Simulated assay, not measured.
Amino acid sequence: MMEDFLVFTTVVEQSSMNKASKLLNLSQPALSRKIAKLEEEWGVALFERKGKRLELTRVGQEAYIYAMEQCQRHQHFLQSVSRFKTAERRVVTLGASLTTIQTTLPPLVTALMNKLPDIEVKLITGKTHEIVSYVRDKRVDLGVVASSISEQGLKCIPLFQDHLELVVPRNHVLAGEQPAAMEDLNGLPMIIFSKGTWYRKLIDHLFGRYGIIPDVRMEIDSFEAIVRLLPTCRAAALLPQSYLRPQLLKDNELVALPMKELEQTRRETCLIYGSSLELTQETKDWIKDIKGCLINALELEQI
């Protein structure tokens, strides 16, 4: 019936069997038979011929409105089916190191969902070397790690640069001295990351280079816990710039102090995936878009 409606509305809009037959790629006799069949089924005359033109009868006008409505409803239905088919939930498995989850992951996933709203994201966590092996073994589709990876079979896309900053309570003795110096950390009460974490290795290397021995009050691998405990312990910490949003510092009455030596802790957060993985154009576009999104969300510098 939808084909008959299409034929009928086309004839009406062209006001000519000849023009309609060309548009529909039907012979004129075949087209005439379809219109005659429709008139026979409905038991009414749909057209009046006036010279070379066809004009709708009164009932033909009503039939045209009805046919148009049915065609539109059918078109809307087909569009809905198409959206449903394309929206079959694609699953992307994302691997992220524990420290990355606390800094990069929320805005990254937001960017992903904005770009691909019908996607389902599954998350696997682990340390950087574990995420690399997950990507290599195809346990995850994409990995986000706080370092640049150079390994055969993997592609690494830098997202943004980051470095550590000294964070102290607003009433801390160092809060009024800007910029702070590395020697200020010697003997200073501090909360640092747990052993085995990427940031702890980075901090230990930094302290070793400058001969710094801080007064370590706690070792924790949670950014949030460190931030909440700093005022209570009246201690300092070295935290990644990407985590130190202005509102976070304000809410916890903390300040971030510039320190020239900490610029040496600069690192890249990267997106990694198997070089054999054929990314869809949507995913490629997303990778391009999220770089800008992350720079804006985390207020970091572009690579």
Results as ranks from 00 to 15, higher is better:
residue 2 M to K: 12
residue 10 T to I: 08
residue 12 V to A: 04
residue 15 S to D: 13
residue 15 S to P: 04
residue 16 S to C: 08
residue 17 M to S: 09
residue 19 K to C: 04
residue 26 L to Y: 11
residue 33 R to A: 09
residue 39 E to I: 06
residue 42 W to R: 15
residue 47 F to G: 03
residue 48 E to Q: 14
residue 48 E to F: 10
residue 48 E to H: 12
residue 57 T to N: 03
residue 58 R to K: 13
residue 59 V to G: 10
residue 67 A to L: 03
residue 69 E to Q: 14
residue 78 L to N: 11
residue 89 R to Q: 11
residue 91 V to P: 04
residue 100 T to K: 00
residue 107 P to W: 05
residue 107 P to Y: 01
residue 112 L to V: 02
residue 113 M to L: 15
residue 120 E to P: 07
residue 125 T to N: 03
residue 125 T to M: 07
residue 129 H to L: 01
residue 133 S to I: 06
residue 134 Y to V: 00
residue 137 D to Q: 14
residue 141 D to P: 00
residue 145 V to K: 04
residue 145 V to A: 00
residue 147 S to G: 13
residue 150 S to C: 06
residue 154 L to C: 03
residue 155 K to G: 07
residue 158 P to W: 04
residue 162 D to K: 09
residue 164 L to H: 08
residue 165 E to L: 12
residue 166 L to I: 05
residue 171 N to Y: 08
residue 175 A to F: 00
residue 178 Q to K: 15
residue 178 Q to M: 15
residue 179 P to K: 01
residue 180 A to D: 05
residue 193 F to T: 08
residue 193 F to N: 11
residue 196 G to Y: 00
residue 197 T to V: 01
residue 199 Y to C: 09
residue 202 L to M: 15
residue 203 I to L: 04
residue 207 F to A: 09
residue 207 F to Y: 11
residue 214 P to Y: 04
residue 218 M to W: 11
residue 220 I to S: 04
residue 228 R to D: 11
residue 228 R to K: 15
residue 230 L to E: 02
residue 232 T to G: 08
residue 232 T to R: 14
residue 233 C to M: 15
residue 233 C to D: 09
residue 235 A to N: 02
residue 237 A to H: 00
residue 238 L to S: 08
residue 238 L to V: 03
residue 240 P to F: 02
residue 243 Y to A: 07
residue 247 Q to K: 06
residue 248 L to Y: 01
residue 249 L to Q: 01
residue 251 D to L: 01
residue 253 E to I: 04
residue 262 L to N: 11
residue 262 L to E: 06
residue 262 L to H: 07
residue 265 T to C: 03
residue 267 R to Q: 13
residue 268 E to T: 14
residue 268 E to V: 12
residue 277 L to D: 10
residue 278 E to F: 09
residue 287 I to G: 03
residue 291 K to C: 02
residue 291 K to L: 03
residue 293 C to H: 14
residue 299 E to K: 14
